[in-house]
Design a protein around this nucleic acid. Structure first.
Lengths: 209, 209, 209, 209
DNA sequence: ACACTCGGGACCTCCCGTTGTT
DNA sequence: AACAACGGGAGGTCCCGAGTGT
């Protein structure tokens, strides 16, 4: 019973690989695990991907990337007020996120931690996704500055880098502590900080958690 | 040529294991790699550690932990001004740190990312180290509050958690970007933020990077 | 040279495993020994059998079982006179048996001795084979009773159990003594005993060896 | 805390080795298991025994042998009526035996099955024990013949061999079936058979189980 | 007489990738 | 396009035995 839908097979493989790598790590995942989860055989896998690394790269380029764009970049692109938009994203991530993500952390960060020093191919791809994320936030902030919704004395790139780092760090520690409240506390802290980026706001009091 | 110095053998194993795990990840490291690096044999390894997990646990409990305490906790314990002390630590980490650490990231974070969802034994040990770190900072901040060197309206635990998350996230993104300047930029940002924790300081301007 | 005949590969593995286990014992046999004897690789072995135990179970279920059925049960099924049939089997075993079997004993008994207290999976499978053997003999005896060829005052199950135990014990001591004459002597003793199961026979004199 | 009683250490080692080998088989037992059970260290073991085989041989020569002599030979030596004495032994073995022995079988037979084809040193030692057993029974039977308590037309050696084989086989099948009733049934059968060895007894009815 | 330490090897398992087949 | 069969090798574990020290 050969399923003759190469596109669907490829997608199933990608999906299965993403979850397997996400949950167990890339190196600890066996291709047998992946094909079992995808419900196909090794032959199918090696028809679509030349080797394990190619599969991993495709997961980054197609799954992780689109996941990141959807979650962080798209909502900012159309938003008039970037600060409010980011705060909303934060709330979403902190509150409505499935337990799975609290437990396993950020897919981008996981792969980056594990693979970026081991395999340069992974590193450049992950860096690309990360860069898109930061540039998306920086762009939104710049637009906000033009619209007088963001203070003009901040460097959008620096702030974007800081936000990204803080977000990644927060996911990371929440995963280590296995404690959603850590995630929520830091999200609130970051949200308060974002408030200080508005023009004319005297921050400090709110920054204090 | 039987070296009869069990303590030295154990220490060599631990040291070698730390670096091997740190550089390649725990799961991707083979015990053959470790024993080769330590200059001993598998027999010696299995005399001192019951299995690979026990070796990993010992690395966390003895190497990672003491590294973290030395780097972050000890300097804070004796310090009169916790804010200045932390800023100094940040400068140390950002400036004088070896390239090795920029490339490979924070040992605690690396292991935590890789292992905390895979092996509960790792998670609790890593969490313990992380907790010591946070509590060390929170303690220093509380003492600073009593000495009127830190604003009294902040919650030491929240701030400590935030600092830890931000530091981890920064190490993580610097590793992914393979760019020391990202590390320096964020260290400066955090240093500025710490300044806002002083009593009577009007923050905001400095927080903007 | 990839042989693409899974059935043959599996059969070769089973055959090789049987002889290796039979000669060296199950636990003392390495899978490398088995694959070397079978002329295949470990990859092929682990494709057909999930682990060493599964291979051992298959050897019991497929080789040992069929060997036992062929040797002891089939000849009895069609036989009109069960006593004569058993005596013939005994003669076959004692006389015409290869030295290999005198040296190494009964395959069923060997595995049972080694594994039945160590691995329950082995025990139940071996017990099943043993049970088939006993039931085969008991059935034949019962039919013989109906045909007035066997005394009606004996319990077929008790006699079958006794014959089986005696046969196993005989193989066992012959192996320990490395002496075929012991086997022959006991076979003769058992043969004489079987004679006493005929109706109207006054036994006793013959039973004395 | 060095225990300075070499004789006791040696005895503890022997005892522990016997039980470990008995329960898990010789080859499957590690010396670490043995020394752990004995409560001594490997150094002590290698002081008393040159290697694993030497330990195994000593177990046969000292533990298994004396166990067999005590159980089967001593009671026969002083007995006036060998048949009654053997029947008593059988009853003892079948009824009062600990479950341990029902589960694990005859120590002599276990070792013989496992080792006699693998290691000639074991085989000759086990054969010696077995020979003592048979000769003990044959001697008793011969004396019984002189005392007119045993039929004169039987060959003591043949009968002894048969009894030994049947006893071993019975232990073996009881172990495989994990069923004490099999042991009891066969013991009764053998006891009845022994009755037929008395002078002037017309057997047959009793032999039928 | 005994304890602790270590060496090297071999075992089972399993994994990545390839080959022949449908 | 997809599958089942297979190759070869490495990984973690553990074991026997031999050292050194007391």
């Amino acid at each position: 019973m050969t399923r003759k839908d190469p596109e669907a097979t490829r997608a199933a493989l990608l999906e299965a690989a993403f979850w397997t790598f996400y949950r167990n790590g890339y190196q600890a995942s066996s291709l047998d695990d992946v094909v079992r989860a995808a419900g196909v055989t090794k032959g199918a896998l090696y028809h679509h991907f030349s080797d394990k690394a190619a599969l991993g790269y495709a997961v980054v380029d197609e799954i992780v990337r689109s996941w990141m764009l959807q979650r962080w970049v798209e909502p900012l692109r159309g938003a008039r007020d970037p600060i409010a938009a980011m705060q909303e994203i934060l709330t979403d991530v902190a509150m409505s996120t499935e337990d799975e993500i609290v437990r396993h952390g950020c897919p981008l960060n996981n792969l980056a931690q594990e693979m970026s020093t081991v395999d340069e191919g992974f590193r450049v791809r992950l860096e690309r996704v990360f860069s898109d994320w930061r540039l998306g936030m920086a762009d939104a902030l710049r637009k906000g500055q033009k619209a007088r919704l963001v203070r003009s004395d901040i460097d959008p790139h620096h702030v974007a880098l800081m936000i990204a780092a803080f977000a990644e760090g927060t996911m990371s520690v929440a995963k280590m502590m296995r404690d959603r409240s850590a995630l929520e506390a830091n999200a609130a802290t970051l949200s308060d900080y974002l408030e200080t980026l508005r023009p004319g706001v005297r921050p400090g009091a709110t920054t204090a958690a």
